[in-house]
C-alpha cells in the first residue's frame, strides 16, 4: 500500500532492557527499526525483514521473537530485552565466552540472535547436539556451518544445572 497521507503516530510505553521508554512511533514502523533507529540498540541486526534469518531476534515478554515481524506499536506494555541488555545483565556471559573460545562466530552478524535463542534453548533443557541443531533451525548463519555454534552451546548446556 502506498501511504500518501501521513498516518497519525502512536504513543507507546515499553520496557527495554529494564528501562521504561515512552516513544511516539509510526504505526507501520517495525520493532526492529524502532530498537535500532529510535533507541540506538543496533546490536539487533536486520538480515531479511521477512522472518526467516533470525538475526533480529529479541526477547519479547520472556520469549524470543523476531523483531522484524513485530510492529513497534505492539511493544506497548511489553518487556523487551536485546543483546545489549542481555550482555549488561551478564546472563549470556558463559555463552559469549564459549562462542569466542570455540570461534562460533565469524562475521558476527547473526550472533546476537543465535545467543538469545541459545540461552532460551538451554533454559528449556536442550543439550543434545542433534536437538540443538533443530532448535537453532530458525537462526541462519552463513559463515560457520553451525558446528562450532552447536559445540559451544552444548558445552555451556552441559555445565548448566537444569531441573
Amino acid at each position: 500500500m502506498i501511504l500518501t497521507e501521513p498516518v497519525a503516530p502512536v504513543t507507546i510505553e515499553t520496557t527495554v532492557n529494564g528501562e521504561t521508554v515512552r516513544a511516539v512511533v509510526s504505526p507501520r514502523q517495525s520493532l526492529a527499526d524502532f530498537l535500532r533507529d529510535d533507541l540506538g540498540l543496533t546490536g539487533t541486526r536486520i538480515g531479511c525483514e521477512h522472518g526467516v534469518c533470525g538475526t533480529c531476534t529479541v526477547v519479547f515478554d520472556g520469549r524470543t521473537a523476531r523483531s522484524c515481524l513485530l510492529l513497534a506499536v505492539q511493544a506497548d506494555g511489553a518487556t523487551i530485552e536485546t543483546i545489549e541488555g542481555a550482555t549488561r545483565s551478564g546472563r549470556l556471559a558463559s555463552l559469549q565466552a564459549a562462542f569466542r573460545a570455540r570461534s562460533a562466530l565469524q562475521c558476527g552478524f547473526c550472533t546476537a540472535g543465535v545467543l538469545l535463542t541459545a540461552a532460551e534453548v538451554i533454559e528449556e533443557g536442550v543439550s543434545d547436539p542433534t536437538a540443538l541443531r533443530h532448535a537453532l533451525s530458525g537462526n541462519l548463519c552463513r559463515c560457520t556451518g553451525y558446528q562450532a555454534i552447536v559445540e559451544a552451546i552444548a558445552k555451556v548446556a552441559a555445565g548448566t544445572p537444569h531441573d
Binding site: T42, G43, T44, T82, I83, E84, T87, Q96, F99, R100, S103, L105, C107, G108, T111, A112, L115
Partner: peptide, 8 residues
C-alpha cells in the same frame, strides 16, 4: 569477536 559477541 570480543565486541561482536556483545552485539557491539
Amino acid at each position: 569477536s570480543a565486541r561482536l559477541v556483545n552485539g557491539a
